[in-house]
């Protein structure tokens, strides 16, 4: 049986084609202003990779902030449910999934069957999501892609005292004025975000194995700070952006 999963995120649309429990195609397209057409394109690309046509697909399940956009979906699943199911396929031993995207952080406790036991969402605090890293990288005038590796060169810990994203920005400015090396400030910023995320994860409990997915998982600086905070190893899937889409495709397969 062939199913498809679509993760319609704020930035990118991801599509996964699943045949008998194996991923046979995947594709990504920028969401842009028309997520519905982006979904069409990514769907076709993924099908091409899988070597089949739309008619071969039994069921399509959509997830992500724009999950209602794709016209060809048959059903939807929440981001929480999709992450849980996706990680269960990739790493069945994972019990805690941390998903940090641009605007939102999520922590999910999963049981041995990939079922959601509990979840927490950080939605109010901008200091605990990817957008904050971007703003801070801008404030330090460092390209975003260099921001993580750069922070790893720090060799002293500087505390960030502001507890709020708005204040943090001006604190960063005053740290710069105090001639604190930029790499130390970068590290302090990653520590601060990791602290917020850890707070959230503690709500659902930190049960190993722990996996980190979502765009911010690409930031090695953040990953280092998070490991230090949680004091444990963290699994980061290679297909970290596709976890939601994989989950959605499995939800589609499970239903039949």
């Amino acid at each position: 049986m062939i199913t498809a999963g679509i993760d319609c995120g704020a930035k990118n649309v991801k599509v996964v084609i699943l045949e008998d429990g194996k991923v046979t195609g995947k594709a990504m397209a920028p969401a842009g202003i028309d997520a519905a057409s982006a979904a069409e394109k990514a769907f076709d690309d993924a099908l091409k990779m899988a070597g089949c046509g739309r008619e071969a697909v039994t069921k399509v399940v959509s997830t992500g902030t724009g999950k209602s956009e794709p016209k060809f979906k048959n059903d939807i699943v929440t981001e929480v449910g999709a992450d849980a199911r996706g990680i269960h396929y990739l790493y069945p031993n994972v019990r805690t999934v941390i998903d940090v995207g641009a605007e939102e952080g999520r922590a999910i406790r999963v049981d041995e069957k990939g079922k959601v036991v509990d979840f927490a969402i950080n939605e109010k605090c901008a200091a605990g999501a990817g957008a904050f890293t971007e703003a801070m990288a801008r404030a330090l005038e460092i390209p975003l892609e260099d921001f993580g590796p750069f922070s790893l060169t720090s060799n002293q810990e500087v505390p960030m005292n502001a507890q709020c994203a708005v204040f943090a920005e001006s604190e960063v400015v005053s740290l710069v004025h105090r001639k604190i090396p930029k790499q130390d400030i970068a590290r302090a910023i990653h520590n601060a975000i990791a602290d917020r995320i850890t707070s959230m994860v503690r709500m659902v409990g930190v049960t190993p194995d722990v996996a980190l997915v979502g765009g911010v998982a690409k930031n090695v600086g953040f990953v280092a700070s998070l490991k230090e905070d949680l004091q444990m190893e963290i699994t980061i899937p290679e297909d970290r952006e596709f976890v939601g889409a994989i989950g959605a495709a499995f939800v589609a397969a499970d239903a039949k």
Partner: peptide, 16 residues
């Protein structure tokens, strides 16, 4: 009150 986000939470909870 962020109504849309609360509803999204309800969606996930109902799913569980």
């Amino acid at each position: 009150n962020d109504k849309a986000r609360v509803k999204a939470r309800v969606d996930a909870f109902m799913e569980t």
